[in-house]
């Protein structure tokens, strides 16, 4: 679906390339996460993939063709939901979707159906200027899906959503994946990526530092630690940290079990976010633009 080979991109007027030697492939039906802090280059990568930036070097093939030589029909086949949901504010949600829908020549879904996907059917005739940020984000997603694109680019799709609606959007994305759509998810929300992505790429300073499945990354990143809390006879409380695979052979743990009062046992798995910090030396929320 997407093949990127030795991609470099330099913004006009800049001496240093923002994207440097990027290589990755995204298969059909995959949810692929581009993860990284703001300013890392993930949005620029997305802009190259959707044909907004064509003055790159290297090769970027999307839907079988080099993106630099694509024409307008390319946009019949991709759906893009930008991070900031921009609409005609004085028009209603229904009018906005009708307008965008009229710009496609491929079959599109009825506006009511699209609004139903994102639970906005009851607010169809309300002007977008009266929508909350979360409602606009959902409308943004509906707009990107109306023409049944096989390839979707979603930039921070759950940003500004309450937990209920965020869960609803996640379910919708899983459903889209089950239908065979390919989704490129750009986010700095590691929890979202961990839950949805088949594979993730860590983007830092315009380079991809690592690509793998979230599960394998976490497995390879280190062992799960077990925290054992216990109380001494004099009442002092202490905690012991043991790698999970050493638990059965750990003498101190057995001693605690036999002679101390055991208070709690918790396992601590490394999150994708902690792994990101370990691999890149950067926090995800730093360098906000």
């Amino acid at each position: 679906m997407i093949e990127v080979h030795e991609l470099f991109y330099t913004y006009p007027g800049s001496k240093q390339p923002l994207l440097q030697d990027m290589n990755f492939q995204i298969g059909t039906g995959e949810i692929f996460g581009l993860l990284g802090p703001s300013g890392a280059g993930k949005s620029t990568t997305q802009k190259v993939l959707i044909g907004m930036l064509k003055d790159y070097t290297g090769s970027v093939k999307v839907l079988g063709g080099e993106i630099a030589s694509s024409n307008r029909t390319f946009y019949e086949k991709i759906g893009v939901a930008f991070e900031f949901p921009n609409f005609y504010m004085r028009l209603t949600a229904r009018e906005n979707l009708q307008m965008f829908r009229s710009l496609y020549s491929v079959p599109t879904v009825e506006v009511n159906e699209a609004l139903r996907w994102v639970s906005l059917e009851d607010y169809a005739d309300r002007k977008v200027q009266d929508y909350s940020k979360g409602m606009k984000m959902r409308l943004n997603l509906a707009r990107s899906l109306m023409h049944h694109p096989p390839l979707l680019f979603l930039d921070e799709p759950t940003s500004g959503l309450d937990p209920t609606n965020a869960a609803h959007i996640k379910q919708l994305m899983i459903k889209l994946k089950e239908e065979g759509r390919t989704i490129v998810l750009t986010t700095h929300n590691m929890a979202l990526a961990e839950q949805l992505c088949d594979r993730v790429a860590f983007v830092v300073d315009g380079k991809i530092r690592l690509i793998d499945t979230p599960a394998r990354l976490m497995k390879e990143a280190g062992q799960t630690q077990v925290e054992v809390k216990y109380a001494h006879k004099d009442g002092r409380v202490e905690a012991l940290h043991i790698p999970i695979h050493e638990l059965s052979q750990n003498r101190q743990f057995h001693s605690i079990m036999n002679s101390q009062e055991l208070l709690s046992i918790h396992s601590h798995e490394m999150s994708l976010e902690q792994l990101f910090i370990r691999v890149t030396g950067r926090a995800l929320h730093e360098a906000e633009q």
């Binding site: 959707i50 307008r72 029909t73 946009y75 019949e76 991709i78 893009v80 930008f82 900031f84 921009n86 609409f87 005609y88 504010m89 965008f100 710009l103 496609y104 020549s105 707009r143």
Partner: peptide, 14 residues
């Protein structure tokens, strides 16, 4: 000002 050109030009509308 409303950055409407981004979504508009992500359609076949040139």
């Amino acid at each position: 000002g409303q950055h409407l050109l981004d979504p508009l030009f992500m359609t076949p509308y040139s």
